[in-house]
Design a protein around this nucleic acid. Structure first.
Lengths: 213, 213
DNA sequence: GCGCGAATTATTCGAGCGTATAATAAGCCG
DNA sequence: CGGCTTATTATACGCTCGAATAATTCGCGC
């Protein structure tokens, strides 16, 4: 008697909705509050459907983790490719990483929730590693191109060291800036990031941070 | 009939045991696996006892969070005060933060688990804020003393900008180095940290990183 | 426009959750 | 050494969990 009416959605659409609902729940209630029932309710379906699209709740969590990380790197890379010079691309990449939507408390919560699981579940470790290496490589590419453009010769090893340092700095500022968002004006954080990176790369003051187009 | 025999412990001792067991469980099973029963079993007691020492499981989690953060800053500060010059103290502080026991996968898991909750529960946010500010202040003090020793005049504002940047760098390297521990030799990470910090502060190459006593 | 495969709902299951309460054993004080 | 306080155990309660299964409704192909 009187069952709920429902809409048959495409597989891609449903999976996306379920993942979005999963992230909503983790952000709102923590990973322990992201239960099958809560997620289903948020997605506007019933709990059983989850097992129709994912072989377990854990697999859905992994898909959700991939989604979060993809969103973060995507935003930064998208900002970078709009730059016309290597310097501009590097600059835009750095700024994007310390500016919304990347610096977002919700995103940080999600990121941390997943990070805390990579020592427990190998699957999460693999996803992390994949994203870390791809981010590092993107940064290294930007740096290499920048140094070529500047006609400054650097060994690949030195380039990698710089990439690791800049990566750490950007990650750290992202953390600091997002967790203590009320302490920094948005603009202030980005400026600090550029000044710090140019110091790290031993550039002239203003070479990256000065207003430019 | 035949109840378990037990030992009546002091309050401090029991609380410590329970907190340690809590951290063990979070590190091993995630925050969702840190249940009252698991924690009690790990501590060698029965579940009911937890409510005798903490008014709720949540309060025990908060105490555990404080413990983790205290352990981290304590290790770095302890290393720093052994230095004889301001330069040495700064150097030791930085190295300690990217060296075991601070760089420890377990510690990072715990840290991340708690970080992911600070947007959900105000109590955790307060604990974070307290520790962040105290860490930043410790770093700022070390930096100020160092610049005085170097006879390099800096405005307080500049000093703070440096502190924020160095803090971010150290946090980021801690993250990177702990999460991708297999990628870095332990010694390599510390060296990279010193080289990066001296660049950040626009010191001469080797001023911090060179071997010294 | 109808029938059939499959997407979705509904219901059930056993396990485990945090908490509350009552019974008991430990160990200090006289 | 015996009684009293209380730290600790034991047990029960009401919920919620993830998963499995059965029942139903949707919507496309013919």
């Amino acid at each position: 008697m009187n069952r709920r009416t429902y809409h048959r959605a495409s597989e891609a659409e449903r999976r996306e909705d379920l993942i979005a609902a999963t992230l909503d729940c983790i952000a709102e209630f923590g990973i322990q509050g992201a239960t099958v029932r809560q997620i289903a309710m948020r997605a506007g379906v019933t709990g059983g459907l989850i097992r129709h699209y994912f072989s377990s709740k854990d697999q859905m969590l992994q898909a959700a983790y991939r989604k979060v990380m993809a969103g973060m790197t995507e935003a930064a890379v998208a900002a970078a490719i709009e730059g016309e010079t290597a310097r501009s691309r590097l600059r835009r990449f750095i700024v994007a990483n310390v500016t919304p939507p990347v610096t977002d408390p919700r995103t940080l919560s999600l990121w941390a929730a997943f990070i805390s699981h990579i020592q427990i579940d190998q699957s999460f470790a693999a996803i992390h590693r994949e994203n870390y290496l791809s981010f590092l490589e993107a940064l290294e590419t930007l740096l290499t191109a920048f140094f070529v453009e500047e006609k400054r010769a650097l060994s690949p090893a030195q380039c990698r060291t710089y990439a690791i340092g800049v990566n750490a700095l950007v990650d750290g500022l992202w953390l600091e800036g997002t967790l203590a968002a009320d302490t920094f004006a948005e603009h202030e954080l980005a400026e600090n990031a550029l000044i710090s990176v140019e110091a790290l790369l031993r550039l002239q003051p203003g070479e990256l941070s000065a207003e430019q187009r």
